[in-house]
C-alpha cells in the first residue's frame, strides 16, 4: 500500500512531491519525539501496576511514613530509604552548589579564553568517568578520610549541631555518599551554569563596566540576575542526577535501613535498596511489589522535582518580562 502511494507520487509534479515528503518527514519527527514521553508514561504505568499488590494491602501513609522495614514480617516502611535519599542528595548539593556556581562564574567571567578552553574539556571528562569508578574511589579514599579525619574533627561541634554527632565507627556514611555524589554532579552543574552565563550578552557587561563598575559588581548586579533562572535550572538538573545515582552511592553509604540523624550515620537510599535486592529474596511475599513501589516513589520524586522547578522557573520568568 505504502509502496503504491510512493509510485503514484512519482508521476505527480515535483512540487506536490516535495510537499508530501515534507509532510511525511514532519510526521516521522513527531512520532520520534513522542517516543520518550510515551516510554516514561509506560514505565510509570508498569511500575504502578506491579506495585498494586502492596498498594492494595498496605495503607499508603504506612508505606511512605512507616519506619519499620521488616519484609519477613510483612512490614514495609519506606521512610528510611526516602530520608536516606534526601539526606545524601542534600549533603551532595550543599557541598557541590557553592563550589560549582563559583567555578562557573570564574570560568565565564574572569578566566582568559585560553584557560576556558583548557578547563572545559577536563570538566566534561569528569562527567564521563563511570559511576563504579567513583564508587571504588569513594571506598578507597573518601570513606577512610571521613572515618579518620573529618568525623573526629567535626564531631567536636556536635553539642551545637546535633547533625555532626558521630555514632558510626566506620566511614560508610551519608557524608561519604554526599562527597562522592558532589564530585559526580559537579561537571553537570558547572557545564550548564557556564553555558547559561555565556548566553548573557557581552554588551550587558560592557554597559556596567562602562559606568566604572568593577568586575565583581558587574557580575553581581548585571550578569547573575540575568542568569539566575538558568543557574537554578542547572542545580535542579544536578539534583535529579544525585537522586537517581545508584552504584557509587551504594558502595559508600553503608546501606543500613535507618532514618539518619547525623551526617556520619549510615543510610540506605532508594536506588541502593532496589539495586541491592532486586532478584534476590524474591521468595518473601510482596517483596517484589515493595521494590517496584520503591522505584515508583523514586521516579515520582525525580519527576516531581523537575515539574516543580519547571513551574517555578516559568513563574519567575513571567514576573521578569
Amino acid at each position: 500500500m505504502e509502496k503504491r502511494d510512493f509510485l503514484k507520487s512519482n508521476i505527480q509534479t515535483p512540487e506536490s512531491r516535495r510537499a508530501k515528503l515534507d509532510q511525511r518527514v514532519r510526521r516521522a519527527f513527531w512520532l520520534f519525539s513522542g517516543i520518550p514521553l510515551i516510554l516514561a508514561l509506560l514505565i510509570l504505568v508498569a511500575l504502578w501496576l506491579k506495585s498494586q499488590p502492596i498498594l492494595l494491602t498496605h495503607p499508603i501513609t504506612k508505606l511512605l511514613f512507616g519506619s519499620a522495614w521488616k519484609p519477613q514480617r510483612g512490614e514495609f516502611g519506606f521512610l528510611p530509604f526516602i530520608s536516606g535519599t534526601i539526606w545524601v542528595t542534600l549533603v551532595a548539593l550543599v557541598i557541590a552548589v557553592p563550589i560549582c556556581v563559583l567555578t562557573a562564574i570564574y570560568l565565564s567571567e574572569y578566566a582568559s579564553g585560553r584557560l576556558q578552553r583548557l578547563v572545559k574539556p577536563l570538566l566534561d571528562l569528569l562527567a564521563a568517568i563511570p559511576s563504579v569508578v567513583y564508587g571504588v574511589w569513594g571506598v578507597l579514599a573518601i570513606v577512610p578520610w571521613v572515618q579518620n579525619s573529618i568525623a573526629p574533627l567535626l564531631s567536636q561541634w556536635s553539642y551545637i549541631f546535633p547533625i555532626l554527632t558521630k555514632t558510626n565507627p566506620t566511614g560508610y556514611s551519608v557524608l561519604a555518599g554526599g562527597i562522592v555524589l558532589a564530585v559526580m554532579v559537579a561537571p553537570f552543574i558547572v557545564a550548564i551554569a557556564y553555558e547559561v552565563l555565556q548566553t548573557v550578552p557581552f554588551g550587558l557587561r560592557q554597559a556596567s563596566l562602562a559606568l566604572g563598575a568593577t568586575r565583581w559588581q558587574t557580575v553581581k548586579y548585571a550578569v547573575l540576575p540575568k542568569a539566575a533562572t538558568g543557574i537554578f535550572a542547572s542545580i535542579i538538573l544536578g539534583c535529579s542526577r544525585a537522586l537517581g545515582e545508584t552504584m557509587a552511592v551504594l558502595m559508600v553509604v553503608g546501606n543500613v535501613p535507618q532514618i539518619p540523624r547525623s551526617i556520619f550515620d549510615a543510610a540506605y537510599p532508594l536506588p541502593a535498596l532496589i539495586a541491592n535486592n532486586y532478584g534476590e529474596m524474591m521468595s518473601i511475599p510482596l517483596y517484589d511489589a515493595a521494590l517496584m513501589s520503591a522505584s515508583l516513589i523514586l521516579l515520582i520524586m525525580v519527576l516531581g522535582l523537575n515539574i516543580f522547578s519547571m513551574l517555578a522557573l516559568r513563574h519567575v520568568l513571567r514576573e521578569r518580562v
Partner: peptide, 8 residues
C-alpha cells in the same frame, strides 16, 4: 553603545 543594554 550601538544598541542599548538596560541592566536587569
Amino acid at each position: 553603545a550601538q544598541r542599548p543594554y538596560p541592566l536587569p
